[in-house]
């Protein structure tokens, strides 16, 4: 059974979002996503400063099994990326909601978060 933390927001392309105290939003891939991918061996992240549109491609995850695109779940500017994934991409497998986060953005419109899936809706989406 996949772990789906109640305090996060989700999108159907299997990214999670966490609203931070400073108004920025941290993005990663869900536990369900990393289970589907299997052992992750490379993560390609967006550039800090990049302006992303919602659903725009923001990176690539390569596992032993497959390559998968990572999308910006909402529009915004990239404030930081998780450089630890460069040397230890397996963090996205072992701690998808913690040390395995992907990037942080400043939302173009903070209200965009409200329309995303909550944990219950995401659980229903993946049949969990």
């Amino acid at each position: 059974m996949s772990n789906i933390p109640a305090e996060l927001k989700y999108v159907t392309s299997h990214e999670w979002l966490r609203l931070e105290a400073d108004g920025s939003v941290t993005v990663g891939i869900t536990e369900h996503a990393q289970e589907l991918l299997g052992d992750i061996v490379f993560v390609e992240l967006p550039k800090v400063g990049a302006q992303l549109a919602a659903e725009e491609q923001a990176g690539v995850v390569e596992s032993v099994k497959a390559a998968s695109d990572v999308y910006a779940p909402i529009a915004g500017e990239v404030l930081a990326v998780n450089e630890a994934l460069e040397g230890t991409p397996e963090l996205a497998n072992s701690e998808p909601y913690g040390e395995g986060w992907f990037f942080r953005i400043r939302p173009a419109n903070a209200a965009d978060l409200d329309s995303l899936l909550d944990a219950a809706a995401y659980a229903a989406e993946i049949g969990a």
Binding site: G38, D39, V64, K65, E90, N93
Partner: peptide, 8 residues
């Protein structure tokens, strides 16, 4: 069995 936890 595809794996028992980690293919790597």
């Amino acid at each position: 069995p595809i794996h028992y936890g980690s293919q790597l």
